[in-house]
């Protein structure tokens, strides 16, 4: 008798509660985040500008007819040096008569490659260190956090200049490794904090009771829940890395000629400020806009990925 009643209750509630109206409103997790992100017009604008820059950087070899990965066409022509915009050279030429547009495009390739690769490598290191420290705690945490502290106590530019001078061969990968080596500690702290908080939650206990091992718990259960803050941190690392690369190249510790970089182009422009100020303005504006867009997008993502943000 009692079982019949509860069965009746179940059938009463189960199928017909999801009305067509509700079904239409139901959205996937991704959709919710996407909707929230697109509501932030500034962040979307940042994303669009970045997409344009990225396309320009990817197609730079086709636009300029140069096949090298990072080197712009090396065709000095002193008769048109520092020309300012002329037919065939819409942004003018540099002090050796090389096309400024091509150098800007390839400089963007270097900047974006360094920024994005650094962010990826940073995440790889930071997630490994942060998740192990946060999940296992105890002496593992102690050792890893002391190492993190040590890295955070080194003045960034000082050690980067020294290492770039002694270790780097001026290639993009070597610069990426150098910058990532000092960007990961702050991100690792974020990851550790997330893991510390999440590992005490009930759903983790449930997963463990079902027999999941440590690795599965970390990768399948905690990491997806910590993804938001990690993605945000990574976006901000991109901007940081682009600025750092430009500083290194400005002081000629970054990429080496004939590879062009916005930073080294700015250093080069110092002697020609009065004859062709465009050489001073263009690379600087390019860095400013790229980094600004990554920062705006990062903040937009932060709001979109935060589950505690209520829908407005």
């Amino acid at each position: 008798m009692a079982t019949v009643q509860s069965d009746q209750l179940l059938t009463q509630f189960q199928p017909n509660e999801i009305t067509p109206e509700l079904a239409r409103k139901r959205r996937s997790q991704f959709r919710i985040i996407f909707d929230r992100f697109t509501r932030n017009k500034v962040a979307v604008a940042g994303f669009v500008v970045l997409a344009v820059l990225l396309v320009a950087a990817v197609f730079a070899p086709i636009i300029t007819g140069q096949t090298s990965t990072y080197d712009p066409p090396n065709d000095p022509n002193l008769s048109i040096a520092l020309s300012g915009p002329i037919p065939g050279h819409p942004l003018g030429t540099d002090d050796l008569g090389r096309d400024e547009l091509a150098r800007m495009l390839f400089g963007g390739r270097v900047s974006l490659a360094v920024g994005i690769l650094t962010a990826l490598l940073t995440i790889l290191i930071a997630v490994t260190v942060g998740s192990l420290a946060g999940y296992y705690g105890g002496w593992v945490d102690m050792v890893m956090m002391r190492v993190t502290d040590a890295f955070l106590s080194v003045p960034l530019l000082v050690v980067l200049f020294v290492l770039a001078r002694t270790f780097s061969d001026g290639s993009v990968p070597s610069i990426v490794i150098l910058i990532a080596a000092f960007e990961w500690p702050s991100v690792a702290r974020v990851v550790r904090g997330e893991f510390l908080g999440l590992k005490e939650r009930e759903f983790l206990l449930a997963a463990r009771t079902l027999g999941a091992n440590d690795l599965r718990l970390m990768v399948r259960h905690i990491l997806p829940n910590a993804a938001g803050p990690i993605i945000v941190a990574a976006t901000l690392v991109v901007g940081d890395a682009i600025i750092t690369e430009s500083v290194l190249s400005f002081f000629s510790f970054g990429v080496r000629p004939p590879t062009s970089s916005w930073g080294s182009m700015l250093n080069n422009s110092r002697d020609f400020i009065s004859s062709d100020p465009l050489l001073l303005y263009l690379p600087g504006i390019a860095i400013l806009i790229t980094v600004l867009c990554f920062n705006l997008m990062g903040d937009g993502l932060r709001d979109a990925l935060d589950p505690y943000m209520t829908e407005r």
Binding site: G239, I243, S246, V247, F250, P283, L288, V291, L292, N295
Partner: peptide, 22 residues
């Protein structure tokens, strides 16, 4: 403040040098 955070310091320095100095 967003612009200030995203601005490469050395470029800002060059701009000020150019404007106020030169």
């Amino acid at each position: 403040s967003y612009i200030g955070i995203s601005m490469p310091v050395f470029w800002f320095a060059l701009l000020l040098q150019e404007l106020f100095g030169v």
